[in-house]
């Protein structure tokens, strides 16, 4: 009973926020809705028995995305972009009708899904000992579907390349993102000094428990990225220039190591991404740590954005 009530409350709140977001006039308001939406989505994931996803949603959905969109809204308010013409009332109504039809069709499809639901849960459980991991989601990510994880880490590297490729003339090789003045006093300064050490400890904790319990590299990486961004926004930490070999190596190292281990598996075991017998645990841990570091750096760089016009050497 309490469960159903909670589901209804969460669902109604999410729907209200979504509608508010789409109807919002200003980008700042819409972003405030978005952050609240991300928080509630985190609760929804808890109700769906997916604590791993709840952690990720809290870190990436509400945290990093919220900050990215907030700063973007602020910068766009200062320098607006030409918007396309809004569709007229008739066309808007037509679009609304079509979207409603799509939603209804999807709803009907969900209601018609077969019972009992096909599931791989039993197979995941049966093979989990071979992965040397206790958390089934981590088992899927690092063993059964390791290829997806590897490719995703490559996608993150590619996104950094893509964002950097947007550097305006004269900015190439400079410091990523806008410049932030050093904040010397006030609550912001306090927070920016206090939070990162705590955050790093929490991130390491979440990475470490991720082997056997909800948590793991994405969540830890998102927290680490947030901490770096915090220090950056308070002007306490200047990121390296994007020309820096070390910075670039840090972005690529995780995916590179994963690829190397995948190839080693192909040579030793005859299948790409097969972990050589007896080495599974050590290699999985090595990949998890390297990926955490690389993804954290990449996520932070993505939020910072490309260098700005003038190089402030």
């Amino acid at each position: 009973m309490t469960g159903l009530l909670a589901d209804l409350a969460i669902g109604a709140a999410i729907l209200a926020l979504a509608a508010g977001m789409v109807a919002a006039r200003s980008a700042f308001t819409a972003t405030a809705f978005f952050i609240a939406y991300g928080l509630l989505l985190g609760l929804a994931w808890v109700r769906l028995g997916a604590v791993d996803i709840a952690l990720t949603e809290a870190a990436i959905g509400a945290g990093l995305s919220g900050v990215l969109l907030l700063t973007a809204a602020a910068r766009l308010a200062a320098r607006p972009v030409a918007t396309e013409r809004a569709p007229g009332p008739l066309l808007t109504a037509l679009i609304a009708l079509c979207c409603a039809a799509v939603a209804v069709a999807i709803g009907a499809a969900i209601l018609s899904l077969p019972e009992p639901t096909p599931s791989l849960a039993a197979e995941v459980a049966a093979n989990l000992p071979a992965t040397a991991l206790g958390n089934p989601v981590a088992g899927v990510l690092m063993s059964y579907r390791a290829l997806d994880t590897l490719l995703e880490s490559a996608v993150v590297v590619l996104a950094v390349v893509g964002v950097w490729s947007l550097t305006p003339p004269g900015g190439w090789g400079g410091f990523p993102g806008p410049f932030h003045l050093r904040v010397e006093s006030g609550p912001l300064a306090l927070l920016a000094r206090l939070l990162p050490p705590i955050g790093i400890v929490i991130a390491l904790h979440i990475l470490w428990v991720g082997k056997d319990a909800p948590g793991g590299k994405f969540q830890a990486a998102a927290i680490l990225a947030a901490m770096w961004l915090l220090a950056w926004m308070a002007g306490l930490a200047t990121p390296p220039r994007i020309a820096s070999r070390r910075l670039r190596f840090a972005v690529s190292a995780g995916a590179g190591l994963f690829l190397a281990i995948g190839v080693a598996g192909a040579l030793a075991e005859g299948a790409f991404l097969a972990y050589p017998a007896g080495w599974t645990k050590a290699l999985v841990l090595a990949v998890e740590f390297a990926l955490t570091a690389s993804i954290a750096v990449a996520l932070a760089l993505l939020v910072m954005g490309p260098p700005e016009e003038e190089d402030r050497a």
């Binding site: 028995g49 899904l113 639901t117 599931s119 791989l120 039993a122 459980a125 989601v137 995703e152 993150v156």
Partner: peptide
């Protein structure tokens, strides 16, 4: 994923892992 709960897991871990990748 939730509908596929079983084997002692609160949800089917395969789609859950896919969602994690998708979010990133």
């Amino acid at each position: 994923a939730r509908r596929g709960a079983g084997a002692g897991f609160p949800g089917d871990p395969v789609p859950q892992a896919i969602i994690l990748t998708g979010i990133v």
